[in-house]
């Protein structure tokens, strides 16, 4: 990040080569349009390039921060497409997500192991519970919208989402605590 702040373009190339694929995968999953996904990924990396100085270590590790920024922009695109809200004006000051911190930074799995753990954990959930979390994450739906979409009580949906994410967090932390994680 220091090299990025100093406008070293090779640092941006390295970050792109490392993170572009998972970021593009996420944005494409949300937007479902390759052309739009390209534009959003381009925005995300150029935002990072132009605002590198504003990114501080206090914001946490870069990958989840990038995921958060990419998801926010992809959901904005989705909402715009659905005409649910007035389009926000482009403003780099507004777009940067706030802090994203790992619950236990000292014992974090590397990204490949985390991916496995996330997929395993979500795969072990009942279908409806997993669907509720996916609707919230990939479609940007609120509790009441999910309850309506799944024809389930609001309280049930809230419990599903809360318990599902708590289970995910514990799964990621417990694997690290068991000594299989890498610092």
């Amino acid at each position: 990040m220091e090299r990025l702040i100093q406008r070293d373009a090779t640092a941006l190339e390295e970050l792109y080569d490392r993170y572009a694929r998972p970021v593009y995968s996420l944005v494409l999953r949300i937007s479902q349009q390759p052309a739009s996904a390209e534009e959003i990924v381009q925005d995300v990396f150029l935002l990072l390039w132009r605002n590198a100085a504003r990114y501080r270590a206090a914001r946490g590790p870069l990958e989840p921060w990038l995921f958060t920024m990419a998801r926010n922009r992809a959901l904005d695109f989705l909402r715009l497409k659905r005409e649910k809200q007035r389009r926000r004006e482009d403003s780099y000051e507004v777009e940067l997500p706030d802090s994203v911190h790992a619950p236990n930074p000292e014992t974090q799995l590397d990204s490949a192991l985390r991916a496995e753990r996330v997929q395993a954990c979500m795969g072990s959930l009942p279908e409806a519970q997993r669907r509720a979390i996916e609707l919230a994450f990939f479609e940007g739906m609120t509790h009441s919208e999910i309850a309506k979409a799944l024809a389930e009580p609001l309280g049930t949906v809230k419990s599903w989402i809360r318990n599902g994410l708590i289970r995910l967090r514990e799964s990621l932390e417990s694997s690290s605590a068991a000594g299989t994680g890498k610092g």
């Binding site: 990924v41 921060w65 994203v100 619950p103 997929q119 990621l172």
Partner: peptide, 27 residues
């Protein structure tokens, strides 16, 4: 902040897709 980290991990549920090479060049 910690909750955002947990939520961000859901990104790994996305099907793997490679960005086009031209995108790197444009950026």
């Amino acid at each position: 902040a910690e909750a955002r980290w947990v939520v961000a991990q859901l990104s790994y549920l996305s099907p793997d897709a490679a960005p086009p090479p031209a995108l790197r060049y444009r950026i």
